[in-house]
Amino acid sequence: MIIDTISICLICIGIVFFIGGAVGILRFPDFYTRMHAAGKGDTCSMFLILLGLGLYQLHEPTLANFLVFGKIMFITIFIMVTSPTSTHALIKAGFEEGIKMWTRNGEKKGNVK
């Protein structure tokens, strides 16, 4: 019972953070700020939802369920390590492409030669 409650809480918080990421991707003004929302919201909501699902899997502790929990944790750690890396690769590609940057005083500056 306690495990079920904890996993429901984790999944709900994960979905709330995913709402933040999705709204951020939709609303933020330029590529770089959208990247903030995408990289961070994605990592954290994925982590919380998968943790919740993995804990729910443990409600009857058999060996097969433990193996599935181990696999889910492996996916989680894998995405936690690779998501900032791909964020970094994509934002660097965009930066060298010369995409314009949005600033407060309304003008846009890019990486022009």
Binding site: I25, F31, R34, M35, D42, S86, L90, A93
Partner: peptide
Amino acid sequence: IDRIVAVNV
């Protein structure tokens, strides 16, 4: 790249 980021998410 915006599209690629969205596909990644």
